[in-house]
Amino acid sequence: MAEEIEIRSIRNIVAAVKDTYNFDFGNYATTSFKRRIERAISVFNCKNVDELITKIKADKNFFDSFLKEITVNTTEMFRDPSFWRKLREDVLPIIGSHQNIRIWHAACSSGEEVYSMAILLKEMDLLGRAQITATDINQDVIAAAKKGAYPLRNMELNQSNYERFEGKGKLSDYFSETEGMAYMDTSLIANVTFKPHDLVLGPGFSKFDLILCRNVLIYFNMVLQDHVVELFSNSLFKNSFLAIGSKETIAWCKSIDKFSTFSIEEKIYQKTKE
């Protein structure tokens, strides 16, 4: 197990990162962030926090690797199949009547969620009208998402999720296998714009019919959750949708007044007020 560090040390790391690179981790949830730092110290073979700070400040490349190490990138295709069924049955029929369907995957990680969405849209004959933007703070996962190559051993879980989602075909219709890897059919993401974006300090950049931000708010404290939900609120058209992780809530965020609950079970909110 990694060495235990003090809360004060975490503040020093946060300050160094903020001063040198203008990323602000000050409002990440303490327990998981502390764990990630402890992990980073052991992964990068640092003797202590001071050495970690020195390396971060001195070397941009080191900072990039550090950033990847402290963010949690785990993801699945069709994670929570009932959520994806809900999108198919109740959300997409509403926004699918628009000329363009504008979707933002906020913190898309390595792209599994984006491919899931593209497959769903394709099976509903809506993919042609979809304009999807997928963003993340971590450039490496964005590159992985664009490539769409995943270890075959991960596909077992993805496939069983897809089966429970009750898709039209088989997940394997959408990828080919070579040497232990699954290569997704990248025509699925032909209309997807990938770009780096930081939810903490980054600006809003457009308006959407649906924003997915699942299993990201859990890494933020309530102050930051509030800020990010406000960013989403400002980035949604009236009557459009925000979907968060199945164990997350925006109930105590300031912007809750602007939203009504569309599906309590699947954590889908509709922005009903400007």
Partner: peptide
């Protein structure tokens, strides 16, 4: 603890969830 999440006790006497490895 919900399935497929780690359950943490967070400072300030709240829970926090995580999808870490």
């Amino acid at each position: 603890a919900p399935s497929n999440y780690h359950l943490y006790v967070e400072l300030g006497n709240t829970f926090a969830l995580s999808t870490e490895e």
